[in-house]
Computed example of a mutant assay.
Amino acid sequence: MTDATPGLDDLPAPVRRLMDGATASLVWTNELGGRTFRLEDGGRTRYLKWQRRAGLTTRQLADVDLVEEARRLGWAGRFLDVPQVLACGSEDDGAWLLTDGIEAENPLAQRWRTDPLLAVPAIARGLRRLHDTLPVARCPFTCRWLDGRLADSPEPERLVVCHGDPCVPNTLLDDHGDAVAHVDLGGLGVADRWADLAIASMSIGWDINFGPGHEELFFQAYGVEPDRERISFYRRLWEG
């Protein structure tokens, strides 16, 4: 680690110690000031998230609670491939989460982004596997982004354990283009599966991902007919 790495200047000492001996690179900055670093050390890859607290509302803090994300990763990891938690902590300034890397890449890697006919169905099948595998009756979590926002929601079509943030980069593909793991599970919890399906299909159509024209392919691969009422409801909530 060197201080020349972007995003290091204001990190607290416990976070910087987790980086010791590793080559750190900033790979993501969220809109609430959170940062994700890739740490490379002797052929091993880890990821370190840091989320500051200053200036955030109670709702925003709940949306980016890394301690809660660690709890969800620990639970989901009993049933699916997700990042293994190596360290997690918090102090007054913020919180951090260190996880092991997974040998796979997100669908926005160049070879998959230019092949939506392969990548989009893989994302859909990966989400279907998550919904079919995680046991609803044993899940202790609710889907965090929906907490307190379902007063006027349609009756659930099928309750599942939702990913909670099923945007394109949060599914990982192996060398064959198959979905093998999920990341960024801080919002994971029980909800109608359309809470995930509405957002995943919307994300696929964003210009920064695959662009318009792939929704039908997504729903075909997942194995469901689009429910326009529920899709519209959950997208309005997401964007509200």
Rank of each mutant, 00 (worst) to 15 (best):
V183N: 03
I208T: 09
R149W: 12
G164W: 00
R158C: 05
N170G: 11
V190C: 07
Q220C: 10
V160C: 04
F218L: 09
V224G: 04
G205A: 15
A191K: 02
T171W: 08
L217P: 07
A198I: 10
F218R: 08
V224H: 04
D175Y: 06
V224S: 11
G211D: 12
I204F: 03
G223V: 04
G187P: 02
G211A: 14
C162P: 06
T171A: 11
E215K: 15
L172E: 05
G213K: 12
W194F: 03
Y222I: 01
L146S: 08
W206V: 01
Q220T: 14
L217I: 14
F218W: 10
E155A: 12
W194S: 03
A221P: 04
L146P: 04
D184R: 01
V180Y: 04
I204Y: 02
A181R: 04
W194R: 02
D152S: 14
A181K: 11
L188C: 12
V161S: 00
H163P: 07
G205S: 15
W194C: 08
A181H: 07
D227N: 15
V224P: 00
E225D: 15
L172Q: 07
F210M: 08
E229K: 11
T142A: 13
G223R: 05
P212T: 11
H163N: 07
D196H: 07
G213V: 09
L150V: 14
Q220I: 08
I199T: 08
R149H: 14
E157R: 05
L146H: 04
R149N: 12
V180G: 04
D227V: 05
D178V: 06
P156N: 11
I204N: 01
A179S: 13
D175F: 09
P166Q: 11
N209P: 01
L188G: 00
R193V: 04
G223A: 07
E229P: 00
T171C: 11
R228F: 06
V183H: 05
D196G: 09
L159Q: 10
Y222F: 05
P212D: 13
L146I: 05
G164C: 06
R228C: 07
R158M: 07
V160E: 06
R193P: 01
D175L: 08
R228P: 00
D178A: 11
Q220A: 15
Y222S: 01
E225T: 15
